[in-house]
């Protein structure tokens, strides 16, 4: 029982990280109609930039906070140099160009930071454990991720649902040309949204760094998962991205945690522990296929 609670919390934590990554993706997708494969590169760059800044400032919090505006600027620059030219193009051009960007960023990281992976230590003040239930300890750092993720999710929901910028974002997602015609500065809005997406991706990357490790291509595999999430949730829908990220987080973690025991009932234990992560990954894709057959534009996507 305690184990189940712990694993579900891990699922929530993974889900929130995935949501941060998926939120930027679904916004650029929904508003600019842009397939940005390089979003995972921003996740990676966020982690590497944070690693450098944490080294300079000798403080996790300070380094992390400084990394966010830095990736915002990076996002704005990428948008201005490449993405802006891609909005009017078809999806194939976007896939091709952003695929090129992935190769570029992966090599760039190798040139600047070298081929070896980096690690960020869990900050001192979060390296203890917290009792979530009496006698059930949980790492404070993971708890902090859940807290930050939840706060950002609420902030984002507030931004999208209650502010003028959010109103423009929602209007842009449903009819891009119309808000342009109404005299809104779309270029500025697009830059802003892209920069915001980059910040969320970087935040996810740097928060995930102490749990895993920072390495080249770290954003690529997780990006595909983020795409699966926004496709399940419906492109352009923040709510859909949140629901899907939570579900996928649970499937992934709970699958990894409980499938081996289940599989061991009819397989050798080595085979079971090797097959379990694969099966929990497969379950995520089966879920997506099921959702798309049932609703071809995702759970909360616009139907036309």
């Amino acid at each position: 029982m305690d184990y189940l609670v712990l694993q579900m919390l891990n699922g929530v934590q993974l889900g929130l990280l995935m949501f941060l990554l998926a939120a930027g993706l679904t916004l650029t997708f929904g508003i600019m109609d842009l397939v940005n494969l390089a979003h995972g590169s921003l996740y990676m760059m966020g982690a590497y930039i944070a690693w450098t800044l944490i080294g300079w400032t000798d403080s996790f919090v300070l380094g992390a906070i400084l990394a966010l505006p830095a990736t915002f600027l990076l996002g704005i620059a990428v948008e201005a140099v490449v993405m802006r030219r891609l909005y009017a193009r078809d999806h194939l051009d976007q896939v091709l160009a952003t695929f090129g960007l992935i190769l570029f960023f992966n090599e760039l990281v190798r040139v600047i930071w070298g081929p070896a992976g980096k690690s960020i230590a869990v900050p001192q003040f979060l390296s203890h454990t917290v009792d979530i239930l009496p006698g059930v300890p949980y790492p404070a750092y993971r708890f902090a991720i859940i807290a930050v993720g939840a706060v950002v999710a609420v902030l984002l929901a507030w931004l999208v649902a209650r502010t003028r910028v959010g109103m423009l974002i929602r209007a842009g997602a449903s009819n891009r040309r119309m808000i342009g015609a109404l005299g809104i500065n779309i270029e500025l809005l697009f830059s802003l949204v892209f920069g915001l997406g980059a910040v969320f991706a970087a935040l996810a990357g740097l928060m995930a760094a102490p749990l895993t490790s920072i390495k080249i291509g770290m954003g690529d595999d997780i990006l595909i998962l983020a795409f699966v999430i926004i496709v399940i949730g419906g492109i352009g829908s923040i709510k859909g991205a949140f629901v899907a990220a939570m579900v996928v987080g649970q499937i992934d973690i709970v699958g990894r945690a409980f499938l081996p025991d289940f599989l061991k009932t009819f397989m050798s234990s080595a085979a079971a522990s090797s097959a379990a992560p694969a099966i929990s990954q497969v379950l995520v894709y089966v879920l997506m296929a099921g959702v798309l057959v049932w609703r071809p534009t995702g759970l909360f996507g616009q139907r036309n």
Binding site: V35, H91, A271, Y285, P296
Partner: peptide, 25 residues
């Protein structure tokens, strides 16, 4: 499906086979 959904679902099915093959002990 259409458009982006088609791109992503074909990618996802390919990943599915990828992970299955990576799990073939």
């Amino acid at each position: 499906t259409r458009g982006v959904y088609f791109i992503m679902i074909t990618l996802a099915f390919a990943q599915l086979v990828y992970y299955v093959s990576a799990g073939l002990e």
